[in-house]
Amino acid sequence: MKVSAYLTSPSAQLGLAVGVLMYGSYGLAHHAFGNTGLIALCAFVGIFIPYYSKLSNKLEELINLRSARLSLGRLVRFIPQLLFNIGVFLALVMAGVFPDSSLDALGGVLGIAVVTTCASQGMQYLALAMANREIGDKNRNVLIALSANIVVTAVATVGWPWAKTAFLTFGIGFGLLFFAVGLLSDWRSLVFRRGGVGVFFGTFNPTHRTHLALIRDAIEARGLKKVYLHCTTVPKLHAQALQRGEIRISEYERGMRVYETTERADVHVNYFPTGRKFYEYETRLAMMQAAVADAGLSDVVEVLSLPEAYDKGGFYAVLAHVKRLNKGQPVHGIHGSDLGGMWVRGIYDESGWIYPYPVVRRDKVSATAIRNGATGLTTHKVEQMMEALR
């Protein structure tokens, strides 16, 4: 990795900003600007945070893939950060930034680490939820969340009674919110109202046999009268990265966009978690309709096309449209346990009392394999369309 590419990376800059803020907060709170231990620790945190973020994301994705349970994934994300925070506070005490006794009222090193981790996880969840709804930028929101958490924690270590109360209320409150949302979501996936309608969102790049199997199973298991499908127009990650010049379309291949990163790309971001090749929106829409017809599901499945609503409000807007059409009816959110499926699960949870219908992906059916030429994984009409595009 080139040093210049690292230094211009938004994720790296975010990490360095957090390190600087940490140094300023603890240095000011404890008059420790000249403490070499504090300087070294903050430098380490500033450099390490982007790598920690990627690691925790990977761990959560792995657990989600195998369980489709939000609570387990969030617990796995929580534990590494807790261990990291324990190490940070031990290092601060050993470096003499503040005495161990100043943490007694906060439960010692373990107590303050637990509350700090709860607050951090909860605030990051809110920051990302706001970014998903087009309120602020993802990186900037996370920076604000981490910054607020660092400042509040640093002030709490001073020993002021009001700071202790604010810290404990702030941390425990956000932690409970973070885990309560996940627990309620998992509970709704097990205890649900039968009937109503289902929604199934994704890239559908292209629609394959597992998509159709999920729809059939959900209709039977939940007694659904209708299922609405909607695909992304341009995935939000790609739309924003294209706008910022971090990725570009390198070529068109068999009707698909082929993306590549540019020199402005963030070295810590995986821009193509589901592959670099994407059929155009209109093509994917036609393939969805053909697959539904092939599967004999046209009477119970409606393929929606709301590109203007999606471009303004993403799947939140599409889901709001479905709710307006089915007032008073339970809505069931179909999704797989893969990365895209769990991302959609988050949208369901942030959109009201949606009943998730999670399915752990164990088959070997892959849209990536289909795009790369594998046959027999989608319907006959879809394969004919793909062959015509070739």
Score class of each variant (00 low, 15 high):
69 R>H: 15
74 R>Y: 15
25 S>R: 02
354 I>S: 00
370 I>E: 08
122 G>P: 04
386 M>Y: 00
377 L>C: 02
173 G>P: 00
100 D>Y: 11
112 I>A: 06
185 S>A: 15
173 G>T: 14
260 E>V: 08
22 M>S: 14
300 V>N: 00
17 A>S: 15
176 L>R: 08
143 L>M: 11
92 L>Y: 00
191 V>C: 00
95 A>H: 06
204 F>N: 04
312 K>F: 02
131 A>C: 08
192 F>L: 03
215 I>G: 03
6 Y>C: 07
204 F>I: 04
357 Y>A: 14
42 C>M: 07
14 L>N: 02
275 G>I: 12
373 G>I: 03
239 A>L: 10
19 G>N: 11
360 V>Q: 11
96 G>L: 10
389 L>G: 10
31 H>Y: 10
299 D>F: 02
247 I>T: 06
163 A>H: 11
1 M>D: 00
306 L>W: 02
48 F>E: 14
197 V>M: 08
138 K>L: 10
374 A>C: 03
298 S>R: 13
46 G>V: 04
78 F>A: 02
199 V>Q: 03
350 E>Q: 15
22 M>C: 13
266 D>A: 02
294 D>L: 04
124 Q>G: 02
283 T>C: 03
312 K>M: 04
9 S>E: 00
145 A>S: 10
231 C>Y: 00
199 V>S: 06
269 V>F: 02
109 V>F: 09
21 L>G: 05
144 I>V: 15
376 G>T: 05
244 R>N: 05
247 I>D: 10
332 H>S: 09
319 L>Y: 03
232 T>K: 01
41 L>R: 05
229 L>G: 10
246 E>R: 06
120 S>C: 05
330 P>K: 09
165 T>S: 09
317 A>Q: 05
2 K>M: 11
165 T>C: 00
364 K>T: 15
19 G>M: 12
28 L>A: 15
53 S>W: 09
390 R>L: 02
194 R>G: 11
303 V>P: 04
31 H>T: 08
104 D>M: 10
7 L>Y: 13
346 G>L: 01
299 D>R: 12
347 I>V: 15
235 P>C: 06
101 S>C: 07
240 Q>I: 08
56 S>Q: 14
323 K>T: 04
208 H>R: 07
296 G>Y: 12
307 P>T: 08
344 V>T: 15
24 G>I: 13
378 T>I: 05
192 F>I: 01
373 G>K: 02
310 Y>V: 02
368 T>Q: 14
55 L>A: 15
207 T>K: 00
38 L>M: 09
56 S>N: 13
163 A>M: 10
345 R>Y: 07
160 W>N: 11
76 V>N: 12
97 V>D: 02
370 I>F: 11
250 S>Q: 13
116 T>H: 13
8 T>S: 14
235 P>S: 04
31 H>L: 08
268 H>F: 14
80 P>K: 05
343 W>C: 06
148 A>F: 12
141 N>H: 04
307 P>G: 03
120 S>G: 05
24 G>C: 15
78 F>N: 03
100 D>W: 08
182 G>R: 09
217 D>N: 13
43 A>I: 12
60 E>Y: 11
193 R>Y: 01
240 Q>F: 04
4 S>T: 06
255 G>T: 06
189 S>H: 01
286 A>Y: 01
273 P>L: 01
